[in-house]
């Protein structure tokens, strides 16, 4: 893992990375409308990072993205999730109440009855929780892979 792959693979990975991340965020944001959701989208984004790790040198990758950044992603996703759930209590509802649903503001549009193309600005706190889970999963999975690759390189040095 210590060597980077050929220039073709590196360039392709760099180009693909952007598309994978955009696609991942699409899945996260449309979690309440289409199949998929926070976890799936987060996993797709993480595969983008993993592609970079595989194609480039690990040291190069760590120069672009710090381990701490992924830890921050993971933590902030989790805190956002539980915070959204907890925010219902000061507002006078019970834990996990979808207090944004149908209020007209952020994600608060009411879905008209019948067949429709899908409205992004609906479903209240559910998209927020999807985004939170997406951020958490992209951080968490990337961290797992980073730790595993560090293990491989250490092992190779030891031999």
């Amino acid at each position: 893992m210590s060597d980077s792959m050929s220039k073709i693979i590196r360039t392709t990975a760099d180009v693909m990375f952007m598309f994978i991340v955009v696609f991942g965020f699409y899945i996260v944001l449309h979690g309440h409308l289409t199949p998929g959701g926070g976890f799936q989208g987060g996993a797709v984004i993480a595969t983008g990072f993993i592609l970079l790790i595989v194609a480039h040198k690990l040291d190069d990758f760590l120069g672009w993205f710090k381990k701490k950044a992924f830890q921050n992603f993971e933590m902030s996703g989790l805190v956002l999730f539980i915070g959204t759930a907890l925010a219902a209590i000061p507002l006078g509802y019970l834990f996990f109440r979808n207090f944004l649903c149908g209020t007209g503001g952020l994600f608060g549009q009411v879905v008209p009855y019948g067949i429709n193309p899908g409205f992004l600005n609906t479903a209240g706190t559910i998209p927020i929780m999807n985004i939170a889970v997406g951020i958490e999963v992209l951080g968490g999975l990337s961290i797992i892979i980073l730790y595993m690759t560090s293990g491989i390189s250490n092992h190779e040095e030891g031999e």
Partner: peptide, 20 residues
Amino acid sequence: DNLPGLLIAIPLLGAFLTPL
């Protein structure tokens, strides 16, 4: 009213903020 919910909400919030 929310005590049973807080039962798991508090440790979860605590767990997620501990690394910070």
